[in-house]
Design a protein around this nucleic acid. Structure first.
Lengths: 175, 175
DNA sequence: CAATTTACTCAACAAACGTTGAGCGAACAA
DNA sequence: TTGTTCGCTCAACGTTTGTTGAGTAAATTG
């Protein structure tokens, strides 16, 4: 009946990570406090430190989940040009939210984007393949930022399929 | 010979604003401290407060300059499809750098983008004009973020003309 | 000239932050 | 059951932050 010790540990660690991801995605690294994460997880701030050591490593752990899945967005794009907005994992949103202000988030973002660019570039022929791939990635970045993070009125309540439909010829022009 | 009092005041106010713009553009709102701005301007931190009251209003004053010029980027784009990257005023960079983490910067960014979207939308025919205009703006946002703020390797040292040349057909597909 | 305004510095405050160490009580191993 | 491990809380530290009020010296005003 009573949960085992390892279970409890894994359970609260998960609660911390979920709370951290949500707050990092909503407020970014600097405006998210350990105290707020702890409060959202229903525990003491000190426990967060015991589990993750430092705020920075908590961020890394929170962001790393979903980073591998982020490549799928590009796969889907290249395969069928069907962009799936609004399905980004919260870890990727947290990274994106912080990448302009937090140096380590910027490094992580650069690594992720470079991986994606390389992936796309390999599927494009021609001399400017890498540059074109970068632009494709940045087009998606811009739309995602405006839609998911900036929450622009013009994109709110617009179905992802419609965005994909309008974006498709533009992206095709870049290949 | 000795500068008048009003001159001195305007002079240092200018130095503060320049230092603030540079730091806000480089580090964003939360990582830029009043003390750092004061040090960069060669004065005491208290003097910054006397001039601008609060860090928030300093940011607003620092960002507001160049906001009107930001619309020209879109004008140029629509007129000749010649995107001029790398010529963004530092005030706009500061706003962009902070828009994902600082709520008031986000509000300012939304206002700026909405103005641009409306402007572009008026020049596009069809039912999806506004949505297309939003996507055009976000494409430029993404490229600017990747180039100016994220400093991606793939776009570094790439002349703006080449980016514009590759981007042109993609943007044309959105009109 | 004397009187006053003002650009500016100095020292300090209160709040919030990340982080730490001691201690408590329940789960574990023997 | 006894001793140990460990998840967890509590209280506090030291630093950094934005911000303030008193004080100084120089420019202005009369």
């Amino acid at each position: 009946m009573t949960p085992t010790r390892a279970e409890r540990r894994a359970r609260t660690e998960q609660r911390i990570l979920e709370a951290a991801r949500a707050l990092f995605a909503e407020k970014g690294f600097e405006r998210t406090t350990i105290r707020a994460v702890a409060a959202a997880a229903g525990i003491d701030p000190a426990l967060v430190m015991q589990h993750f050591g430092t705020k920075q490593s908590l961020f890394e752990r929170a962001v790393h989940v979903g980073t591998e899945d982020a490549g799928r967005l590009v796969d889907d794009l290249l395969g069928s040009l069907g962009v799936k907005l609004g399905e980004l994992p919260q870890g990727s949103l947290a990274m994106m939210r912080s990448m302009l202000t937090h140096p380590e988030a910027a490094a992580s973002a650069r690594a992720t984007f470079s991986r994606q660019i390389e992936q796309i570039g390999a599927a494009i022929e021609g001399r400017d393949a890498r540059l074109k791939a970068a632009l494709i990635t940045l087009v998606l970045l811009g739309v995602t930022v405006g839609h998911q993070l900036l929450d622009l009125d013009e994109l709110r309540d617009v179905p992802a399929e419609e965005v994909a439909r309008l974006l498709r010829p533009a992206l095709q022009a870049l290949t």
